[in-house]
């Protein structure tokens, strides 16, 4: 029953399949992001209260959503690595940490830039923003922790434990605007109710969210493929790739 799962952990299998997936996903990601950005910047109507500054939503919301869901990818990969000692899961975890750090940084910076014209401040220590900053430190902490160890076996194990411990922060970030009084407004896109954004503004947002998910997949796989090559450099199939390159 577990054979498929172990096959999934085969580096060569991953390298081959991800190469095929990239050929399809990379153009889709580029297309969605370009269409979404042009639609959001040029064709979506201005907001009745915020005017044009709300156009930052088309990047702020997708990168923030991914900074959270990317954490689950990292934590699950970390758990798989701890339980099955699967090398590929460790690579996925570290690649996801790198992606997460970049996306969380973007979420904070775009939020800050958006805050200035709407709230009147670049930064405020409210629950949502502070917990998102903790998320950035978690991602950076995992990257730094791995670099700090000379023994990479213990390094990856320590990173996986830190990733699992940090999981508790994700629902806190998500629910912070409902649990406490904060400057940040509650979620606009709701799963169970009607979203509180006009359809003419929502379609480009949806395109951007899907586009950023594709981008995440593409960049994550690129990262993992490079790491797989480095890891498997002694094997025949990697040396063949080097020869052909």
């Amino acid at each position: 029953m577990w054979t498929w799962f172990h096959k999934l952990g085969s580096p060569k299998w991953f390298y081959d399949i991800s190469g095929k997936l990239l050929n399809f996903m990379a153009p889709v990601a580029a297309l969605l992001l370009i269409v979404g950005a042009i639609w959001g910047l040029l064709y979506a109507p201005a907001d009745f209260r915020q005017g044009n500054s709300y156009r930052i939503i088309y990047i702020h919301v997708p990168v923030s959503v991914l900074s959270l869901s990317g954490y689950y990818i990292m934590a699950i990969a970390g758990a798989i690595h701890l339980i099955w000692k699967m090398k590929l899961a460790e690579i996925a975890m570290r690649s996801a940490a790198r992606m997460g750090a970049g996306l969380t940084f973007l979420a904070l910076v775009t939020g800050s830039i958006w805050g200035k014209p709407t709230w009147g401040t670049w930064w405020v220590w409210d629950a949502r923003i502070t917990s998102e900053l903790v998320l950035l430190f978690l991602y950076l902490g995992i990257i730094a922790l791995y670099e700090a160890y000379d023994n990479k076996v213990s390094a990856s194990r320590a990173c996986a434990v830190l990733a699992l411990v940090g999981t508790v922060n994700i629902p806190i970030i998500y629910k912070s605007v409902d649990w406490w009084y904060s400057l940040h407004q509650p979620a606009t896109i709701k799963l169970t109710q009607k979203s509180s954004i006009d359809p003419s503004m929502f379609y480009p947002l949806l395109i951007m969210i899907v586009g950023f998910y594709f981008f995440y997949g593409v960049a994550l796989m690129l990262n993992m493929r490079t790491e797989v090559l480095i890891n498997e450099r002694k094997t025949r199939w990697v040396q063949d790739i080097v020869e052909r390159a």
């Binding site: 044009n52 500054s53 990047i59 990168v63 790198r98 940084f105 200035k116 490079t226």
Partner: peptide
Amino acid sequence: MAGHGPFVWASYAITLSVIVFLIWLPVQQ
């Protein structure tokens, strides 16, 4: 953008550079 241009364009420019960086880094490595 009626005064909001610097904020909006700065956000998009920073995002673009981070996206490019996250793609460039593994390719470079």
